[in-house]
Structures are given as C-alpha cells and as structure tokens.
Simulated scan of single mutants.
Amino acid sequence: MTDLRVGIVGVGVMGADHAERVARRTAGARLVAVADPDIARAEALAKSLDVRVVEDPLDLIAADDVDAVILASPGFAHAEQLLVCLEHRKPVLCEKPLTMDAASSLQVVEAEHKVGRPLIQVGFMRRFDPEYAALKELLDSGELGRPLMLHNVHRNKSAPVTFRSEMIVRDSMVHEVDIARWLLGDEITRITVHAPKPSDLVGAGVLDPQLALFELANGTMADAEVFVNFQVGYEVRCEAVAERGSATIGLGSGVLTRAAGRWGGAMPSDFRVRFERAYDIEVQRWVEAAARGAIDGPSAWDGYAAVAVCEAGIESLTSGRPVDVDLADRRKILG
C-alpha cells in the first residue's frame, strides 16, 4: 500500500510535534510539506525532516502530492482552511477549536455533509489516551450501572500572559466539554462557569482558575476545574461516579518514591508529555482511516458541539449565570 502523503499547516508547538510524529513514528504515512507564516521556523523544521515548505497554506492543501492535511494553525484560520480541504476532498485532522464560533463551525459541518462523506476529524486526543479509553469501555459495559456524574481537574503549570479568561474556556476547558459528551453519551444543554478570586500569580484581569458545571440532556452532570497557572506541573484527572461505584483516571502511573522523609513522584511539565501516547494513537488511527476513506475519532459535529458549549461558557463567565447551549438539531443537519 502506498503511504498517505501528509502536509501540515502550522508548525508551532503542536504542529512541530505532529511533524516529528508523522515523519518518524507513524506507519503508512509520509510527511511531504509544511506551511507556516513564520517562514524561518517552517524552513528550519522542513530541513530537519527533509520536506518542502509551501508559503501559502491553501496552496499546500491543494497540492497534488498532498493526500491529507493536519491543521495545527491558529483557530481563526480554521474555517477557511477546512472549507478548502473539503473543496479538494482532502481528509483533515484539525486541532481544536474547529472554528472560533458556533455559526462558522455549523457552516463547516453543513459543507462536509454536502460532500457526502466524512473528511474532518477533530483533535480531541484524550479519547485516544489508554486511560480514558479504558474508562469509556468500563462505563459502556454497564458494570458500574448508569453513569451519574463526572468530576474533572485540568491544571497547567503556566500559561502565557496573552492567555486571557475566555481562552481558558475556549482552548483549555474545551477538552472537558468533549470528554463529558463522550463519556456520558449525550449533548451538554446548559453550562455555568464561575471564577473565584483569581490567583495573584496571573495577569491583571485574568480569571484563573475557573469552575464549570455541565448539564447534559440525559440528566447527568459534569464539573470541571481548569487552572492554567497552577505552577506545579501538568495535571489532568477524571472521576466518573455511577450507580454502583466510581472510577478515577489520571492519578499518575510513574515511579512512587519514599526517601528523605518524603514520598511522591514526577509530574509532567506539559500536555505533550502527559498525552504523548494519545497523540501517537490518534494520528496513527487517523492515517489508517484516511487511507480507507473514513475518519476514526471525533467528527466535525463533535467539534461544532464543543464550540457551541464553549461559546455559552464564555457568556456564563461574563454574566455569572447559567447559559443554555444553542445547538442545532443534528437530525435536520445530517439527516
């Protein structure tokens, strides 16, 4: 079988990580081109991986020798780039967010539906993490009875000073939004986002940490603490509470030491360390699915639903009140 020829748009932290992954660790794929507004950065990466640089991302998407695309560009560029991927019938793995607002995300969903087959997979990599996958399997098995609640903790060591309050919802909490929908098996219909007195270690006007409550259509609930300037390290935990028990992931599986009057273990420095295996599995499965004309993961609808919830979450953060999620009727959109 011929390798899937992959082009990557955006080679910042995430895009460069994916470039290394496709070039060195993904079976059945070959990295052929990269594009980034920072030409020097793109050229340096391209040289190290022996691929070419395409100055215009839309030209990369349209290139005859690019079979599939990874979008790791800023969210504001996704709508246009996704529509061009659909125009050229190119499978695309799009890092979150799908787009910057629910209206344009819905337009992307509708455009893909008109193509007649799914081409867009959204980069919610936690679904591919072995611990999350095991938790999903356990809940779906019914062994613990019906799931009732989900508790989430999402902490980063630090965030840039440019990372504002609304970005905590749109770019960080969005992972908890997707996980709640996936693990609990329904849409989020209402979200409430509160913020305590912020940490003194964050920029002026930034509400960090934040605490959210998700209410789902099936009567389940999920909460999420998101703290992007935790100072200690990168920590993601999830506990599912069901009728006959609970299950927790993210407690750390590294070496636990006891010495010099202390006990403990190491904490990852950032998301790439904690979810390295998840990213590897995600990209490998995306490549295999793209080669057979399918997707194998979160869909464009999943990306749209997450954006719609986060849009309501930002409104709730501003108003201090619960906000209903304005979600289109899936049956009317997709049939």
Rank of each mutant, 00 (worst) to 15 (best):
A23D: 07
A23P: 04
R24V: 10
R25G: 09
T26F: 08
A27Y: 09
G28T: 14
A29V: 12
R30T: 14
R30E: 15
L31W: 06
L31T: 11
V32C: 13
A33F: 12
A33T: 12
A35S: 15
D36L: 11
D36S: 14
P37F: 06
P37E: 07
D38N: 15
I39E: 15
A40Q: 13
R41V: 09
R41N: 08
R41Q: 13
A42T: 03
E43M: 03
E43L: 02
E43G: 04
E43S: 05
A44N: 14
A44D: 13
K47Q: 12
D50T: 00
V51F: 01
R52D: 04
R52M: 05
V54C: 02
D56R: 11
P57F: 00
D59C: 05
D59P: 00
L60P: 00
A63P: 01
D64P: 05
D64T: 10
D65V: 10
D65L: 11
V66H: 06
V66A: 05
V66G: 01
V66L: 10
A68Q: 07
V69T: 09
I70C: 10
I70Q: 08
L71H: 06
L71Y: 05
A72T: 15
S73I: 06
S73A: 15
F76Q: 14
A77E: 14
H78G: 08
H78F: 12
A79L: 09
Q81A: 02
Q81F: 04
L82Q: 02
L82Y: 04
L83H: 08
V84M: 08
V84P: 01
V84G: 00
L86Q: 01
L86M: 07
R89V: 09
K90Y: 07
P91V: 05
L93P: 04
